[in-house]
Amino acid sequence: MKKLLLAATALALLSSAANAQSIRVGTEGAYAPWNFINEAGELDGYEIDLANAICEHAGIECEVVQNDWESIIPNLLSGNYDVIMAGMSITDERLETINFTQDYYPPDPSLFVATAGAEFDFDNLEGARIAVQGNTIQAAYAEENFADANEILSFATPDQTIADLAAGNVDLILADGSFLQPVVDNSGGAIVFVGPEVMIGGGVGGGVRKEDTELLATLNESLDALKADGTVNQLLAEWYGDDAPAY
């Protein structure tokens, strides 16, 4: 009987997201302006506002919870929340494990930054210490393209890459351009873009478990409506400025 009850509980957890009147959204809370902790100690950012708009349109309650990046997919699969909204790029590799909503941020060029005055030959890059956030599309790209002649340094959070660049512990950072742009803008000229743009991934979307097909449909229906009525574009402009992409 105990095994039957446990099995029934597990089945209920797996199917609850599809029919629930509320959902839990997992986010990193360390990737401004996508998601971050504001001065009031609250989760804030583009994806927080968008998650609330999606839930309002769908007529369901929305709870946003913080989870570190390294375990964000495993904890989705474990049922700790129902959807990931954490600046996560849609990739073929991730699609083997989870499904994604349609993108709510178009494909974003990955860019390099360095301290002002540093010079690099990207046609023959050798000996550079390149910082990336672990388990990202940039980490995979750097390992594939630069590991033979350079040192790839993986960090738990993107803010750590910025701190180590400022401290002189790394030479370059490779990350999403939308994350790096405000860093460069607010650095007073101390941090600058260098090198080429790199297109990786297929835009940013919300990640859901494979079995939660009804939830996926609900999220996509809401995103369709929020794109059509201008809500998504309004939020993009609010969080990414006048040069923000638009749908």
Rank of each mutant, 00 (worst) to 15 (best):
N124E: 15
S78D: 05
E47W: 00
A30L: 11
A7M: 11
F146N: 09
G203I: 01
N169F: 10
D212I: 01
D242R: 11
C55L: 04
E70T: 12
D229V: 09
E39S: 15
N75R: 15
K3M: 09
A86F: 13
D108T: 13
N52H: 14
A8V: 11
L235K: 11
N135Q: 09
L5Y: 12
G41C: 05
I162A: 02
A18I: 00
N52P: 00
G127Q: 12
E93P: 00
A175G: 02
D185M: 08
A225L: 04
T27A: 09
A166P: 02
D108L: 06
E214A: 14
G230Q: 05
K3T: 14
E211R: 09
G134V: 09
T9G: 10
A118S: 13
P182N: 04
A53C: 08
A156T: 04
E63R: 13
E63M: 06
A30N: 06
L215C: 13
S222P: 06
D49V: 00
L180P: 09
A244S: 14
L50Y: 06
A51H: 00
N99M: 09
A7S: 11
T157W: 03
A142Q: 09
A51R: 00
E70I: 04
A20E: 02
I73M: 05
T27M: 00
A167K: 07
L223V: 11
L153K: 10
A12E: 04
V25R: 04
V232W: 08
E214N: 13
K2M: 14
Q133H: 06
E63P: 00
K3W: 14
S89C: 03
A167C: 07
V232P: 03
W69N: 06
D44Y: 12
V184W: 05
D148H: 01
R94C: 05
E119L: 10
T27V: 06
D44R: 03
S22F: 04
T218R: 12
D103V: 07
R94Y: 01
R129F: 09
R209V: 01
L172N: 13
E151S: 11
L215H: 04
N52E: 09
E197K: 08
P33F: 03
E144P: 13
S110V: 13
V65S: 02
Q138P: 06
Y141H: 11
S187F: 05
G127P: 10
D44Q: 15
P245C: 03
S110R: 09
L4N: 08
A8L: 15
V132G: 01
Y31L: 13
N35W: 00
L153M: 15
F193T: 05
L219G: 01
S178N: 08
N99A: 03
G230F: 02
D92G: 10
D159W: 07
L111R: 15
L13Y: 10
Q234M: 11
L11K: 01
E144R: 12
E42L: 14
P182D: 07
T115E: 12
E47R: 00
N220I: 03
N75V: 04
P106A: 12
A228F: 04
L153N: 10
I200T: 02
A163S: 13
